[in-house]
Design a protein around this nucleic acid. Sequence first.
DNA 1: CGCCAGCGGTGCGCCATTGCACCTCCTCGG
DNA 2: CCGAGGAGGTGCAATGGCGCACCGCTGGCG
Lengths: 291, 291
Amino acid sequence: MFLAVAEGGTVRAAADMLAVNHATIIRGIGRLEEKLSTKLFDKLPSGYKLTDAGADIVELAGQMSSASAQIEAKIFGRDQSISGPLRLTLPVSFATDLLMPTLADFSAAYPNIALEIIGSGSVVNLSNREADVALRVVIGNGAPPDNLYGTRLGGFHTGYYVRRDLLEVRSKPVAWLLGANEAVPSDWQPAGGITTTATPIRFAEMRSQYEAARAGMGISILPCFLGDADPLLARVPGGPVARAGDIWLLTHADTRRTKRVRLLCDQIHAAMRGFAPRLAGQVDGGGAELA
Amino acid sequence: MFLAVAEGGTVRAAADMLAVNHATIIRGIGRLEEKLSTKLFDKLPSGYKLTDAGADIVELAGQMSSASAQIEAKIFGRDQSISGPLRLTLPVSFATDLLMPTLADFSAAYPNIALEIIGSGSVVNLSNREADVALRVVIGNGAPPDNLYGTRLGGFHTGYYVRRDLLEVRSKPVAWLLGANEAVPSDWQPAGGITTTATPIRFAEMRSQYEAARAGMGISILPCFLGDADPLLARVPGGPVARAGDIWLLTHADTRRTKRVRLLCDQIHAAMRGFAPRLAGQVDGGGAELA
DNA sequence: CGCCAGCGGTGCGCCATTGCACCTCCTCGG
DNA sequence: CCGAGGAGGTGCAATGGCGCACCGCTGGCG
């Protein structure tokens, strides 16, 4: 409870995290403060804010939580049955647009495995066993952390996409739809008479960037497996297709020997091998013939 | 609860450690096993014995417990008031025969400090904050652990003691009363016509060794502050008085800046300075004149 | 051979903890 | 200027955990 409130900032946010009533949180924190005879939070109208004393112990509380999670992981790792919980975290776009059929097959093949899919908007901590298997995108040439076992599933490419009808009308300049860290490309210009506006529109999440492109707001850099598969989108003439990074499949050290972790990893691995052309942008999709 | 059962071996021993009913332990362990859906203990008629799975997580459970204790220590360390709990651990002989008046004075001077005295038959773990201040005897020339702050209070000497009337009667040979690791001295013999038996009687605890000497069972090696102060005992003629080791006063890194820890340490420090002659065996006590 | 001490296990009454509903207060925006 | 929404806080009923007393079992000892 202490960690949840410290992280969430409010009692109600912590209650949502722990799936309990917010009154329980209030009284639990109250009991903790009484037991330690120390005020851990300043109760402001805007929420709970850590006091100095509270900040001092947040790290130690994290150690307790981590140890608890590792106990679950160790016990989970001993379980070789093909029933029980199994939590997978992966980027939402991979889940909805690429692997959903694969995951549906897996769930149908092993109905006793309670598969939980966590779209990783925020970074899920695999070390604390908030998930058992993680599919992660590493931009550029990176490597996963040491205490996690990972296999590289291959690279993926991105291209420049725009709504198909904007290629034909060419009425007015279109905007650049960029992620938080992307820059307007300086080494090429859209061919075919397309003009662009000067100031880009930025998006914090790739999903909304994709939806903006579908809505015809402008040109966006998207993974090829997303853009090519969407009949509404087309590649921008002259736009380069470049390798954006690698896809890794990570498992926790304590649980990777588990039967159901192995089964899921094998299935994802096989599926991703089949998806390699789509990931590399080598499949004729909506606008491939224009590239 | 899990740690207590793993350490104690039986449910009832764990219940005593935690000062709860043994039924609570049974149901608590039951809930834990249900939550992890794993058997952690083999329920034998002789007690609870760790399974492989249970042994796997005992270390992690220890980490949780340690982190919890460190939280208490950090909070305790921030508390600069002269009220609240304060736990001191020291060998029982020091508590009862040397420092009890000092501790009584301290308790009278600061009535709001709840002083708890823990006779350290077993080794109390200061790192886990089972105590705040520890007075420890180091045999020979040792040093305390790194993460504890300690000051040397000085050395103490031991001598050879026997019940006074046995010096006068000399009816029959007396036995050697030795600790677990002591040996029959080879470089001297009792003077004054005292004869000794060949096989020593051994004691696991110094306290029972002392009581055996008072009962007239034989010759025992005792700290001088104990033997000299007891009118029933006298030094064995010819018996050497030798430095046995050092006395250290240890405090936890997180709590040593606390006001009440400082106060107690200062008072013990001052008292022990006054006790230096008695500790060195330089005070005329019960049998000093016979030395 | 029987007694007894110590072990784990369980039914019952009680109380702490929880969840629900509702409250006040503050803030922000129309 | 006021209403809506979201923050913390609280009374009430129900549930779940706890302590007590008691049970069956085993193993050692007179």
